[in-house]
Amino acid sequence: MILTVDDSKSMRMLLRNALTQRGYEVVEAEDGVAALEWLRDNSPGLVITDINMPRMDGFGLIEALRGETRWDSTPILVLTTESSNEKKSRARDAGATGWIVKPFDPEKLASAVRRVLH
């Protein structure tokens, strides 16, 4: 199961479309707070999160997850519009497993998922 976290509904739908077509089960959350709420009782195989979100942003979510042993090995992909190395290493430093650069090609998304989803 993959949890997608993005405040943009259209982005969530694009993710959902691309992922469900490839046989993944998708759960959506609107922001970090909603994601954490859901994660209290659920264990997805992968979290894909946007960075810029209201209430709790992607970095905040990653930090919260990595702070718990229960989540320290769950792969997390961040959605970023920046392909600069600086942004990528920041995502990596924050605890992300990898990143997906928006706008994403569904194939690229799928390969990124395959590279981190156990």
Binding site: M1, K9, R16, T20, V27, S43, H118
Partner: peptide, 23 residues
């Protein structure tokens, strides 16, 4: 070592998705 072990590969699902959060 990393317990609990992460979920196995995502299962293909019939009911594609559910949404949490309001809206």
């Amino acid at each position: 070592v990393s317990a609990p072990s992460p979920q196995p590969v995502a299962q293909p699902a019939q009911n594609a998705s559910q949404s949490i959060g309001s809206g």
